[in-house]
Computed example of a mutant assay.
Amino acid sequence: MHSARQQTKMNFHPPTEVDRTAILRILNLTSDKLEYAEAELEEWLSEQAHLPHQIDKRVFTAFALFSGKGIEECKKRMDAYFTMRAVFPALFNDRDPTSPIIKESGECVATGMCNGYTPEFSRLYVAKLIKTEPKHFDCNALLRRLLFILDLTLVLDRRTDICLIADCSGLSVKHFLKVSISQARDFMLCVQTVYPIRIRKIIFLNVKPYCKTLLENMILPLLRKKIASRTQIFSDNIDNLEKVVPLHLLPSDMGGTGPGSKEVSDFWMNQLEDNVEWFLTQGSLQANESQRNGTSTLKAPGCNVM
């Protein structure tokens, strides 16, 4: 029924001034407070010998948006943001989004950020298998690509929360056997406690009974308690999906009326390629632990930033 409705074309629309004002209000910030936090972060960074100094100004903004919780948390997250790239080489080495392995991942799994905001000013990030044969699935390449997209949208967007939605159609036990739990754990550590984002909810769609068991035993234990409590699992019946996510944002092949998941994925693959120089420079900056004065805020494995 949903696929018969008029679908929108995939694009990225940066927040308008009205959006920016609303987001600041949600975060209990003002433009002046945000600018002050950006300046304080920049001054603090200049005093940290172990951290890179010539960084994208938009990165300051992304972290300063967390200053409603206190500037010290912003500093810890920014420190961890550059530290994690050295701590987790399997996820952050070779940051070339045009590499063959990343392109092959794009042909196997559709993933990316959807058009628009939810009423709570969340962004939707979706994932869905294109090629269902397990031989095509590369867990490491997918996790690296997700981090590419998260880094890029971090500097292009201004948002408060994100919602992660995975369509489990075509997933088999063999797919789960190809998942590296250690890399998945490291990935979730970065997303949950390092990046300046808040995960509002995680939704799994079209989950078969065996898939539900595997999710509950392999993936959910990697989530922080608060995020796990916000996780929802839907079987084949998604009639109540519109109660938890706006269908006009969700891809048409995932129960919504937005651009299809492959169109979303192709759009962000093109964006990654267009920004390859950013990833090879800004996106590859990392901490130099030999220059650190004090203890790292990020201790792997299984730690939190705080």
Rank of each mutant, 00 (worst) to 15 (best):
A300K: 07
S182D: 14
V109F: 02
I55T: 00
D239L: 07
R159N: 14
T118A: 02
A184P: 07
P221I: 08
T61K: 04
D32A: 10
T21F: 12
D96L: 01
T295R: 12
F204I: 05
G258F: 00
L154C: 08
G256Q: 02
C114W: 01
I130K: 09
E72P: 14
V207G: 09
L45I: 08
Y117E: 03
A80W: 00
E263N: 05
L223Q: 04
A39N: 14
L247Y: 05
A184S: 11
P301T: 06
Q6N: 13
V18H: 12
R230F: 15
M218I: 11
G106C: 12
Q183M: 12
G260I: 07
D96R: 03
R292K: 06
L34G: 06
N115P: 11
A49C: 07
D79G: 01
L298H: 04
L129A: 03
C163F: 04
T21I: 13
G302V: 12
S290G: 08
C190H: 12
C108Y: 02
N11A: 14
I238S: 01
W44T: 04
M254N: 01
T16H: 05
F88C: 13
T8F: 15
P119I: 03
M113R: 04
E47K: 12
P119N: 03
E47P: 11
E72N: 15
N206L: 07
S122W: 01
C303F: 13
L164F: 06
P221S: 00
R95S: 06
A166C: 12
Q6M: 14
Q271Y: 02
M78E: 01
Y125F: 10
L214Q: 02
I219W: 03
F60R: 01
Y195N: 01
K75N: 03
R5P: 15
L205K: 03
K225V: 11
A166E: 12
S31A: 14
K33Q: 13
K103L: 10
R198Q: 11
H53C: 14
D19F: 06
D236A: 12
L142R: 04
A37M: 00
Q192F: 05
T98P: 02
D96W: 04
F279W: 02
L34V: 08
E17W: 10
E107H: 13
K69M: 13
W268T: 00
A184Y: 07
L272C: 08
L215F: 07
N206S: 10
Y36F: 09
K226A: 08
A49Q: 09
M254Y: 03
L146A: 15
R144I: 09
F60I: 07
P209A: 06
K226Y: 03
Q54P: 10
N217D: 08
S31Y: 14
T297G: 09
D157L: 01
K103W: 07
S172V: 09
T160H: 12
H13C: 15
K262V: 14
H136T: 11
D157C: 00
D19W: 06
K75L: 01
T98F: 05
M113Y: 13
K135D: 12
D79A: 04
P14W: 08
S265L: 05
A127T: 11
A39V: 15
M84S: 08
I102N: 05
V305W: 03
T16E: 06
F234L: 03
M84R: 13
I233F: 02
Q286C: 14
K103S: 11
S182I: 10
